[in-house]
């Protein structure tokens, strides 16, 4: 779980952060304006490719993607 959190956090930083904003496992990503709703697509695709899962569109909500911790909970629902 910790390894997954670190992988996702690093992806978020590399993909979306263009200044020195600090991202922790609880940092609000969508509601905090770090990830916009358009960019959630690449995050979802990254998770699906990385963990070989399929996240249904109705589960990939802004709420479910709003922090690294929440994303990990979501991913773990689908990882076999």
């Amino acid at each position: 779980m910790d390894e997954m959190k670190e992988i996702i956090k690093n992806y978020v930083i590399r993909e979306y952060v263009e200044d020195d904003t600090d991202v922790t496992y609880d940092t609000p990503l969508i509601s905090g304006g770090i990830v916009d709703s358009f960019s959630m697509v690449s995050l979802k695709r990254f998770l699906e490719n990385k963990y070989q899962i399929a996240i249904p569109d109705d589960k990939a909500t802004p709420e479910a993607f709003d922090s690294v911790n929440k994303i990990c909970l979501l991913v773990n629902e689908y990882v076999k």
Partner: peptide, 21 residues
């Protein structure tokens, strides 16, 4: 259609996105 973005004028990032999709 699905929509994704790349960092402004960042061609390496664009290539990553082309690979991803």
């Amino acid at each position: 259609a699905m929509h994704d973005t790349f960092k402004h004028s960042d061609m390496e990032h664009l290539e990553e996105k082309l690979q991803l999709h």
